[in-house]
Design a protein around this nucleic acid. Structure first.
Lengths: 202, 202
DNA sequence: CTTGCGATGTTATCACGATTAACATTCAAA
DNA sequence: TTTGAATGTTAATCGTGATAACATCGCAAG
């Protein structure tokens, strides 16, 4: 039997719409999409989508979740060939973050957009926790080995490193990183920042 | 005589529109404004604005310039009571950046929006140069005194510090900074990052 | 001083995109 | 089978960016 039979009028429109929206965003390289475009891609009328999403923002929020999953994949893949708790491990995580920002520009931009209410933000943050947690654990492990006296500040260190990575990624994403330093290299910068931050008591 | 006489039909609609847009953005705390809203605020019809701006984005670009001026004011004020080339000087600049991001949320968000073409970006970058230049000079001066062997890397150091400040500011701006570290304090984080980065060879 | 053009404004009008309303179809349970 | 809930469709509303066509105002040339 065909596994993916359409159980209803369309099938699971909700999921198809999210996927279609994501594909659309990826293909045009911008999250400035239209309900009509998504509907057409799924082969359904625009209003049909409102049976599954309160409004356009709700659809985008769903796509954002996909983006979070995507960044987690990058993170997970990055850990494949590195020893846990090493500097290389932390570098790999940072590198994955930067790579995601550049590979999936539109998604990266979308996931930090400031729309929606605080509630949604919390929910998304919860989803993100996994990714941050990975970084936090890597740092904690590293500090335990290399700077045991700083282990207690691992959370602050992780937050600071995240901020640094986020700043570099954001500036590069907006093509501003090399505005002044023509040779600015995101990855190199993050490595430098990582080493600087790990060697300080937060 | 009344100083601010309207020399023409309206007066200088262009400038009034920019100001009105800025006020509007500030008052609603979002740069998601409407041509009609701006027009109404100035007491003019919507199409009139198109005599002075190619399109909505052109108006927002003009507002962005105001935002850059605003951040420069913060920067300048920050230097008032600090000795040039000291760590306190650099801290003050970073603090000003963070403060601007929080005080003028909408403007901060607007100025890093990824719209418009590359040309505009270049122009804006040029305007920004002043602000970055101040930071760069402060860092160069500091390094010359404290770590002369690292002076040659001052540009990279400044770029890295900017990135760190930008990351912290951006995350706080999106209310995400304290997602994991409940007690995260932007200013304290930046001070830590500053010290870490300044003590490393880039 | 008048005329006429260019700069500015105004009022229709469009086209589009987000929603909602009103109506139609299908699944599933009684 | 019948019927209501779920899910779709088409028609219609509204807000918004943008352009067209028409109206004014200020100034420079005669």
């Amino acid at each position: 039997m065909n596994q993916s039979v359409a159980p209803y009028h369309h099938g699971d429109l909700r999921n198809c719409a999210i996927t279609a929206a994501a594909e659309l965003i990826e293909s045009i390289g911008s999250y400035d999409i239209t309900i009509a475009q998504v509907a057409k891609r799924v082969g359904v009328s625009s209003p049909a989508l409102y049976r599954h999403f309160k409004d356009k923002d709700a659809l985008l929020t769903a796509v954002r979740e996909l983006a979070h999953i995507g960044i987690m994949e990058y993170t997970t893949d990055a850990q494949d060939s590195v020893a846990p708790g090493t500097l290389a491990h932390i570098d790999a995580l940072g590198s994955a973050y930067l790579r995601f920002a550049m590979d999936k520009k539109a998604f990266f931009g979308l996931m930090w957009e400031n729309h929606g209410d605080a509630e949604e933000r919390r929910a998304e943050a919860r989803a993100k926790r996994t990714g941050f947690q990975v970084l936090h654990e890597a740092i904690e492990l590293y500090l335990r080995k290399q700077r045991p006296e700083s282990v207690e500040t691992s959370l602050q260190t992780a937050t600071l490193l995240w901020s640094a990575a986020h700043g570099i990624a954001t500036l590069q994403h907006n093509r501003l990183l090399d505005t002044f330093d023509h040779d600015a290299d995101a990855e190199a910068m993050l490595r430098t920042a990582t080493r600087a931050i790990l060697n300080v008591n937060v």
